[in-house]
Design a protein around this nucleic acid. Structure first.
Lengths: 230, 230
DNA sequence: ACAAAAGTGTTCACACTACACCCATGG
DNA sequence: CCATGGGTGTAGTGTGAACACTTTTGT
């Protein structure tokens, strides 16, 4: 099928590696696994898989995501391609990294166990195989940028969330404390959330009202010429 | 050399495509060529080349850059990897795009002619082969972001430049007019430029003083806890 | 009654915007 | 002497940061 001018060129294994972020215990976590194959078998690693002939890079990443989370429609974004000659000690592999945001409320922990996978606090990241630490670093940089520009922070939650939890997540992503009055003021000035009548009462006695991201309100917000900023 | 677990996996042609930006006639330009090979021979295309077995992705992009510009030490940054199954109609090719900033003062135009290459105003971008238009779009988005955050705008110039030219470039990158007093105020507040005693007298009668980006001053600026912002 | 987290407004400093005139020079 | 682009300061407005107390409720 390949054109004649494409002959005699080197070909490469191409992998899709996923930096799967989740929010848990007021901290940002990454899903890691013990690498199942040689070389470096047993070492901490990102979730990954090789790209197949009839798959796009995104398809390959989605396949990996679904395999380990069983969630569909996960928010995903490409980070970068990594292509140092010796990056993978098992052979020449070009790897394309994607980060993904998963909703931990609906995460099946038994799944994780069958893959020897664990949610690791990003503040306690171990040494990972190959250049995976660099991938996580790059993914975090991109995540921070995107969160500040687009309403993707809500994708960590399954529809509804409390403002204290949202703030905890924000603080976990940026690793810095923010004033809750200022945080709430910024959110309410955008008018993109619905306050529900229900309270979440597990993490406090008084209880915090649930809120919901309202897509319609967000469209109006954009239409008024403003830009999202957190 | 490849590990046994890597066998029986599909391999792919991998290309490095370069979005080469330059500043000319008060407008941002991209270096394009007439694609020399089938399919789509003769159509407008970015500069690109296949990655070789012993090259990193960056090496491959640098090779392409050097081939078409003969400049070394060009500022270069990865944009994204493109891997749709049918993106290249000549075969399955994964392409990694890089943007680069070249100094047009020292560009050898005879070179460009021998490659059938031309500097095209980004406001008049023609239809390009495959997904190259998307690549340029993504590169521009990234360039704009980076320029606003890091002092890379100076890499369009060969050491010295005038403030009017710098502003013209800024306006060309963002496609919007800015007030020259505000623009200069922001620059001078950072104190990262040296004003030279020489004037550039070609584009005006009075002449505009040359300035130079001062790396040492910039380090001090960063050390004082401030962040670059344009 | 008290501990623990939720919720709420105001003030101040700084950064961004808008805006208009004089200067130097070549022709 | 005039046309062309280079160079300069100020006032007003909006945005981000700092800051403390009251409310609710389970124990």
């Amino acid at each position: 099928m390949s054109n004649q001018y494409y002959k005699n060129k080197s070909t490469f294994l191409v992998a899709a590696d996923c930096i799967i972020f989740g929010f848990k215990d007021k901290e940002l976590h990454v899903l890691l696994t013990r690498r199942p194959v040689e070389p470096m078998a047993g070492e901490w690693s990102l979730m990954g898989g090789f790209v197949a002939e009839d798959e796009s890079l995104e398809d390959a990443a989605k396949k990996v995501l679904f395999e380990y989370t069983q969630q569909k429609g996960i928010y995903m974004e490409q980070v970068n391609a990594y292509g140092e000659v010796d990056r993978d000690t098992g052979g020449r592999v070009i790897s394309v990294a994607f980060y993904a945001l998963v909703r931990l409320e609906e995460f099946d922990t038994s799944l994780a166990q069958s893959f020897d996978a664990r949610w690791i606090n990003i503040k306690e990241l171990p040494q990972l195989v190959f250049d995976h630490n660099k991938m996580v670093e790059d993914a975090l940089t991109l995540l921070r940028f995107k969160v500040s520009m687009q309403p993707i922070i809500f994708k960590f939650f399954d529809e509804k969330f409390t403002l204290p939890a949202l703030q905890d997540l924000y603080e976990a992503i940026y690793q810095r404390q923010v004033d809750k009055r200022n945080f709430r003021k910024k959110l309410s000035s955008m008018n993109i959330l619905d306050k529900l009548d229900i309270k979440e009462t597990e993490s406090s006695k008084r209880g915090a009202f649930y809120h919901r991201f309202n897509k319609e309100k967000y469209k109006e917000f954009l239409a008024s010429g403003k830009y999202f900023s957190l």
